Computed example of a mutant assay.
Amino acid sequence: MKKITLLAFTSLMILGQAFAQTKPKVKLERTKAVQETGKSDYYTFKLSDKVTRQEVTFKNRYGITIAADLYLPKNRGSQSLAALAISGPFGAVKEQSSGLYAQTMAERGFATLAFDPSYTGESGGEPRNVASPDINTEDFSAAVDFLGLHPSVDRNRIGIIGICGYAGMALNAVAVDKRVKAVATTSMYDMSRVNAKGYFDKLTLEERTKTLEQMSQQRWADAQKGTPAPSTNNLPEKLQGNEPQFVVDYFNYYKTPRGFHPNSVNSNGAWTATMPLSFMNMPLLTYIKEISPRPVLLIAGEKAHSRYFSEDAYQAAAEPKELVIIPNASHVDLYDQTDMIPFDKLSAFFNENLKPVKATETAKAAVVR
Rank of each mutant, 00 (worst) to 15 (best):
M1N: 07
L6W: 08
Q17F: 03
F19K: 15
A20M: 03
K25G: 03
K25S: 07
R30T: 09
R30F: 07
Q35M: 14
E36K: 14
G38R: 05
K39L: 14
K39W: 13
K39H: 15
D41K: 09
D41E: 15
Y42F: 06
F45D: 04
K46H: 15
S48F: 04
K50N: 12
V51D: 11
V51A: 08
Q54E: 15
Q54N: 15
Q54V: 10
Y62T: 13
A67M: 01
A68C: 07
L70A: 08
L72N: 05
P73N: 12
P73R: 03
K74L: 11
N75M: 02
R76S: 11
G77N: 09
Q79P: 00
S80L: 15
L84F: 03
G91M: 02
G91K: 01
K94V: 07
K94A: 01
S98D: 07
G99Y: 10
T104R: 12
T104L: 10
T104M: 10
M105H: 13
M105A: 03
A106I: 04
T112C: 14
D116H: 02
T120G: 10
T120E: 05
G125V: 06
P127D: 01
P127S: 05
P133N: 13
E138S: 15
D139V: 04
A143Y: 05
L149V: 00
H150G: 10
H150R: 08
S152F: 09
V153Q: 05
R157S: 09
G162E: 02
C164S: 15
G165P: 01
A170M: 08
A170H: 01
A173D: 00
D177A: 04
M191I: 13
M191P: 04
K197R: 14
F200K: 08
K202R: 14
K202D: 14
T204Q: 09
L205N: 07
E206P: 01
E207F: 01
L212I: 12
M215T: 11
S216L: 14
Q218S: 12
Q224S: 10
K225V: 08
G226S: 07
L235Y: 13
L235E: 08
K238N: 06
L239I: 05
N242M: 05
N242E: 13
P244I: 01
Q245V: 12
V247T: 00
V248H: 02
Y250I: 03
R258W: 02
G259A: 06
S267V: 04
W271S: 04
T272C: 10
T274M: 03
F279T: 06
M282V: 11
P283V: 14
L285N: 08
L285Q: 02
Y287S: 10
Y287A: 11
Y287C: 09
Y287K: 14
Y287P: 00
I291N: 00
I291H: 00
E302C: 07
F309Q: 03
E319V: 06
K321C: 09
I325R: 01
P327N: 04
S330I: 00
H331I: 06
H331S: 07
D333R: 01
D336N: 15
Q337M: 09
M340A: 12
F349E: 01
F349A: 09
N353L: 05
N353P: 06
K355L: 08
V357M: 12
A359F: 11
K364N: 15
A365Q: 06
V368P: 01
